[in-house]
């Protein structure tokens, strides 16, 4: 079953505030093998995926949407950065389905996740295309 076209344009609930710690930045930086000798005040470029991933869960686990999680492949990922995320930031992520195209048994779900501080400062936008097999026909 292809996903319902009504999904396009839908915005999901924002993630609860996430406080970015020096320890979390150091953990992520070490995990990608990068240097932490200069400290871990500034998060690596792809760090926003930590909260973007949580925002994605709202879409992927919503029973009314009907996505089968094991059939989802990450197609692409892009980040627009307003400023780097820093230790001490309290951030939330809000996902919107920008586009939905179903063809040949696949749903191509274009998502946009806005990442902002709880004080309303825009920090960046994460764009992901999720490919859901089992749609189409």
């Amino acid at each position: 079953m292809p996903l319902d076209q009504a999904l396009a344009g839908r915005t999901f609930a924002s993630t609860p505030p996430y406080t970015v710690s020096v320890e979390k930045i150091a953990e992520f930086t070490t995990a990608i093998g990068a240097d932490t000798s200069q400290g871990a005040e500034v998060a690596p470029l792809t760090f926003p995926i930590v909260v973007a991933f949580r925002a994605m869960a709202a879409l992927l686990t919503d029973p009314e949407v009907g996505i089968e999680l094991h059939n989802v492949v990450h197609g692409d990922q892009r980040f627009a950065q307003t400023r780097p995320i820093r230790a001490g930031d309290e951030i939330t992520a809000t996902l919107t389905v920008d586009s939905l195209r179903s063809a040949a048994g696949m749903d191509m779900i274009g998502t946009r996740t806005e990442i902002a501080s709880v004080t309303g400062e825009h920090l960046g936008t994460a764009h992901a295309t999720l490919v859901h097999r089992g749609g189409g026909k």
Binding site: A34, V42, L45, V73, G75, D76, R78, F79, Q81
Partner: peptide, 20 residues
């Protein structure tokens, strides 16, 4: 990580991404 080693300051990056 490679990009950051080249451009030094991550704050200069406006956008970054790729397709898997």
């Amino acid at each position: 990580r490679a990009l950051t080693s080249w451009v030094q300051d991550p704050a200069r990056v406006v956008s970054f991404g790729g397709r898997f």
